[in-house]
């Protein structure tokens, strides 16, 4: 059977994270095999007749349900967001390398910008469930406005698990009483010892955060970046996501900063 034939999954639940972002919970309908994945991996999701697109997994493998965070961006994501509970979608994967968890089991800085925070939520919930294996955890997250902040109902539980959580928005409003500014301003406030870091967000933000961490003594090879690239096959063949000799879908999407610094 070809790699391109997807598994079928039923949409069990749809949560609204922001006006243009839904968190969908899926149940795979294939018999037998358990769906095993790592934080940082992604799937190819499809709506038959409208196409397929790559979406990072937003849930942690330590928890039961498989969740994807879908932001309205094009034909396929629009079609997914038009789906109802009970509808069937196609799933291929998981693909990609995921975060190198065994090398991150010490102090961890997690920095996310915009929809890049979805893949980091998988890592945060993983750490939360395996808390004793990690050191101090500091989370910095920025979105455009307070309306665009994802997973707000979970920040408390992360704090209760002993993680530092700091959130900021680019544009404040009268309802927002928190920080206004860049993610880097949150990093400035953390008390940090050089450890490992996971970053996902727009290129400018990745470079700015990595720069701040390097100033604080972090090694380039300890800073892990989840790269966004256009993907069509997920199996390293179609060349859409090629970065030099690497295929983001197979060799990534998580790269240490020293390997991709030049191309971000």
């Amino acid at each position: 059977m070809s790699e391109y034939i997807p598994m079928q999954a039923e949409i069990l639940d749809i949560d609204i994270e922001s006006p243009n972002t839904y968190l969908i919970t899926l149940k795979l309908l294939e018999e037998g095999e358990e769906f095993r994945y790592l934080p940082g991996q992604f799937v190819m999701i499809s709506v038959f007749g409208l196409g397929e697109c790559p979406i990072s997994i937003a849930s942690s493998p330590t928890r039961r349900s498989l969740q994807l965070c879908i932001r309205r961006a094009g034909k396929v994501t629009n079609a997914i967001m038009d789906c109802l509970v009970g509808d069937i979608v196609g799933i291929r994967g998981p693909y990609g390398n995921g975060f190198p968890l065994d090398r991150m089991m010490r102090d961890v800085v997690i920095a996310g910008g915009g929809s890049g925070f979805a893949t980091l939520r998988s890592l945060i919930n993983y750490i939360s469930d395996r808390r004793e294996m990690f050191g101090k955890v500091s989370i910095a997250y920025g979105a455009r406005t307070s309306q665009d902040l994802y997973f707000m109902q979970e920040y408390r539980s992360w704090q209760r698990a002993g993680m530092e959580v700091a959130v900021t928005v680019d544009i404040g409003d009268e309802l927002w009483k928190g920080n206004v500014g860049l993610v880097t301003s949150l990093i400035d406030r953390f008390e940090l010892n050089p450890g490992s870091a996971a970053i996902c967000g727009p290129p400018v933000m990745i470079n700015a955060v990595a720069g701040k961490l390097m100033e604080r003594g972090f090694h380039l090879s300890d800073i892990y970046v989840s790269m966004e690239r256009h993907m069509k096959c997920g199996v390293g063949k179609c060349e859409h996501c090629a970065i030099g000799p690497y295929h983001t879908c197979q060799d990534g999407p998580v790269f240490s900063y020293d390997r991709v610094r030049e191309v971000i």
């Binding site: 007749g49 179609c238 060349e239 859409h240 996501c241």
Partner: peptide, 28 residues
């Protein structure tokens, strides 16, 4: 060997592999 994967047909149809080119502006 660059390619794209697209669907054709609702509710029944075909998932197609079509050749693509990294020299086209929208490729990446």
């Amino acid at each position: 060997h660059c390619f794209n994967i697209i669907d054709s047909g609702i509710p029944d149809g075909e998932r197609l592999r079509c050749r693509d080119s990294c020299l086209l502006s929208g490729f990446s």
